[in-house]
Amino acid sequence: MESARIVSALARYTRDFPLAEDVAQEALAEALVAWERDGEPADPVGWLLSTARRRAIDAFRRRSALDERYTTLARQLPESAELDWDPDRIGDDILALMFVSCHPVLSPEARVALTLRAVGGLGSEEIARAFLVPVPTIQARITRAKKTIAAAGVPFELPPAEERRPRLGGVLSVLYVIFTEGSTATAGDRLLRTDLAREAIRLARMLVALLPGEPETHGLLALFELTAARFPARTGPGGEPILLADQNRLLWDRSAIRRGLAALGQARAAGRGLGPYGLQAAIAACHASAPSVAETDWERVVLMYEALGRVAPSPVVELNRAVAVAMASGPLAALAIVDELVATDRLAGSHLLPTVRGELLTRLGRVAEARAELELAARLCGNARERSVLLGKAEALG
């Protein structure tokens, strides 16, 4: 629970992010022995920080023969020095930790792994299990990320004011990737990985508390809350996917919907217009407010997707707009949008494009073509649960 605060305070103290993580873990290992023997201290966090500080000083002294900078720093940190644990700086420390973990010098995969490890406090095994990759792969990503940060000389501090907003986009993007994988797993035999999605929500709430004046942080949190509100109705007793039209909306989490709408209201209150995450949250709000699929304001959803396409154009946005157009104006108008994506080969290798095309062709009565598209989608789909739904639809077409 306190890992992000401890690591961020140590990173500010040592100016060495990898060392901060190492000594924090060493302090925890020492606590497992000492607390069992001597009892839990009155101030556990302070105990861990003091122990980690001593370990850091030892590390500086060991390195002093190799690096003059560490020699100087070790002399400046006497044994009696106290770690500056200023409650007013805790927020800045954690925010700096987020920016460092999501630094542009790192690969997207490394940013996700390091954020979950350093800010979220998850172990390598938990991260590997969530993304269905071997533990050594995650460990290697985290190790490389730390080395890259050290080699690039990335300082442990908040970016300058002129860089903060552009860099914030990278932080939001990492949280979005984490949540998206949790809400619709790309591989494996589960549709949802709620533990991963919940961690993304927790980190988004933390970011909103640290940057309350940034509308897109509120927009991202709103999107997460409104999407997660549907989790209880998205799968059946056996884990099988339940499509939006068939979901029991009484199972939707009304508290999450209220939180999401409140966050969306905060994003709008800034008066700067909704950004990409805010627009996606507004679309999710349309679904959350509708009694059924048929009663959804599809015209408004289409307008939102058009706005999103101008602010953050992507083939996935266009595909989602096609789905909304199909509901608002019929499948023929939507098929023209989808066929344009096929012609430009902008979603090659994705199962999403043939999935939507198969649905539209089914509604148009072009059964043979629809079955071929759904079978192609099933072959491309990496998630076993989604694949079974696609194959079932294809078989139902005879």
Results as ranks from 00 to 15, higher is better:
Leu10Val: 03
Arg12Asn: 00
Arg15Glu: 00
Leu19Asn: 02
Ala20His: 04
Ala20Gly: 02
Glu21His: 11
Ala27Trp: 04
Glu30Lys: 14
Glu36Asn: 09
Glu40Phe: 08
Ala56Ile: 01
Arg63Phe: 08
Asp67Met: 00
Arg69Thr: 01
Leu77Lys: 05
Asp86Tyr: 05
Asp88Ser: 13
Leu95Pro: 00
Val100Cys: 00
Ala110Thr: 09
Ala113Asn: 03
Val119Met: 01
Gly121Lys: 03
Leu122Pro: 05
Ser124Trp: 13
Val135Asn: 12
Gln139Cys: 12
Thr143Leu: 15
Ala145Ile: 10
Phe156Leu: 02
Ala161Phe: 04
Glu163Trp: 04
Tyr176Pro: 09
Ile178Trp: 04
Ser183Arg: 13
Ser183His: 15
Glu199Lys: 13
Arg202Thr: 12
Ala204Phe: 01
Glu216Val: 00
Leu221Trp: 03
Leu226Trp: 07
Ala229Trp: 09
Arg230Gln: 06
Pro232Lys: 09
Thr235Leu: 05
Thr235Gly: 09
Gly236Asn: 03
Leu250Glu: 15
Ser255Lys: 09
Arg258Leu: 13
Ala262Asn: 14
Arg272Lys: 13
Arg272Cys: 08
Pro276Leu: 10
His287Phe: 11
Ala288Phe: 04
Val293Tyr: 07
Asp297Val: 15
Trp298Arg: 09
Arg300Thr: 11
Gly309Trp: 04
Pro315Asp: 05
Val317Lys: 11
Val323Tyr: 06
Val325Pro: 02
Leu332Gln: 15
Val338His: 12
Gly349Pro: 09
Pro354Arg: 05
Leu360His: 12
Arg366Phe: 05
Glu369Ile: 09
Glu369Lys: 07
Leu380Gly: 06
Ser388Val: 13
Leu391Val: 11
Glu395Val: 15
Gly398Tyr: 07
